[in-house]
Design a protein around this nucleic acid. Structure first.
Length: 364
DNA sequence: ACTCTAACAGCAGACGGG
DNA sequence: GCCCGTCC
DNA sequence: ACTTGCTGTTAGAG
């Protein structure tokens, strides 16, 4: 997932488009988060030693619940209003990429088998992480948890990242938080990295504005998308020998992939057969997203005490005291932030004289 | 020398007690 | 502060 | 029906 080398490319070529921010500065902000990505990380790291993970009495994994629960509380305590966006159907173009990942996972499963037979602890640790897969059940578990916590959940028709970007474009959220740079390629006006890191590591939150990225690179959004495709994305191969630097040079020189293909030395660079860069471009320009206001309604409500205890304590073996205290934390955070910043920053956007077009990436 | 790419290794949560 | 075990 | 990605580092091609 993501765009190869885009972080470094922007750090080198558009440093002013990114600025360090304090975690605290997002008090009262609505932030969209790709849920599946988070769940994946929790499954890899929370409570894992070797192939062991946190489980309930039935032996079902609960690491994702533990991770989602504590992280979400941390966000709420910071006064952040998170909305979690879940993946829907991946686009067809992504399927070859997914197939690649699947075969890697199969390889890792074999490696794990061998490591277990050989009793090699380090290898068991390493390979078992690579076999992790987010299932439908994990997603449903987390949706249930979040709803019980009073945190809104959105189910994207396709890519969660694209839906997050759309929420931000339509001003329903302040920013998208992700570790995945293709949020920018999907045109998220404001994009945060390392929002979750600052506690464990000492990495500052890094904030990107897509309008500044375009300004500094001196590219249109469509050209930026072409740059990302050339750099390497999930939807199609890139051209061997062309990375971020060269791609940027070529886009600046020729303006689009079409014109690059007309001018490039094809002895030197081999273009992939049947290269679907146009379809990839379209997925970034006009991804399948939900725009129906009713389905996108977001409410941050009080936690359901009883529901949480039933789900976490009774069904999943969480410590009763811990859960009770955590519920109190949620309530306290809610009281503190309910009075927070709001109207003055979320001014009405109803400017009907300006048509809402795909290319409007401005921010107030 | 310099630039860039590919290939590979190592890392990923949150919390609290000592 | 850090280190390290625990969370389920 | 299918899921790692990122940020170093280093070696080597052009």
């Amino acid at each position: 997932m993501g765009i190869k080398g885009l972080t470094k490319l922007l750090a080198d070529n558009a440093p002013k488009a990114m600025k360090e921010q304090k975690f605290e500065s997002y008090f009262g902000r609505k932030i969209a988060i790709d849920a599946s990505m988070s769940i994946y990380q929790f499954l890899i790291v929370v409570g894992r030693s070797g192939t062991e993970m946190l489980t309930n009495e039935a032996g079902e994994v609960t690491s994702h619940l533990q991770g989602m629960f504590t992280r979400t509380i941390r966000l709420l305590e910071a006064g952040i209003k998170p909305v979690y966006v879940f993946d829907g159907q991946p686009p067809d173009l992504k399927k070859q990429e997914l197939a690649k990942r699947y075969s890697k996972r199969a390889d890792a499963t074999e490696d794990l088998q061998q490591a277990m037979e050989a009793g090699n602890k380090e290898d068991i640790e390493k390979f078992s992480k690579r076999t992790v897969k987010v299932t439908k059940q994990h997603n449903e578990d987390c949706k249930r948890l979040l709803r019980l916590m009073g945190v809104p959940v959105i189910e994207a028709p396709s890519e969660a990242e694209a839906q997050c970007a759309a929420l931000c474009k339509s001003r329903k959220v302040y920013a998208v938080a992700s570790e995945d740079m293709d949020s920018l390629t999907f045109g998220a006006p404001r994009f945060l990295r390392h929002l979750m890191d600052p506690s464990s590591r000492k990495v500052p939150v890094m904030e990107f504005e897509v309008s500044k990225v375009l300004e500094e690179l001196n590219l249109t959004m469509d050209q930026f998308i072409d740059l990302c495709i050339l750099s390497g994305c999930d939807y199609c191969d890139s051209i061997r020998g062309i990375g971020g630097q060269t791609a940027l040079k070529l886009i600046r020189q020729h303006g689009s992939i079409e014109h690059i293909l007309q001018n490039i030395n094809k002895e030197r660079y081999s273009i992939p057969d049947d290269w679907p860069y146009q379809e990839a471009r379209r997925l970034f320009q006009e991804p399948l997203v939900c725009t129906d206001d009713e389905q996108l309604e977001m409410k941050w409500s009080a936690p359901d005490d009883e529901g949480l205890i039933t789900f976490l304590v009774n069904e999943n073996g969480f410590n009763s005291d811990r859960v009770t205290k955590a519920i109190e934390k949620i309530k306290a955070a809610k009281n503190k932030s309910s009075q927070g910043r709001l109207e003055s920053f979320f001014k009405p956007v109803g400017n009907t004289s300006m048509p809402i077009k795909r290319k409007a990436y401005w921010l107030p």
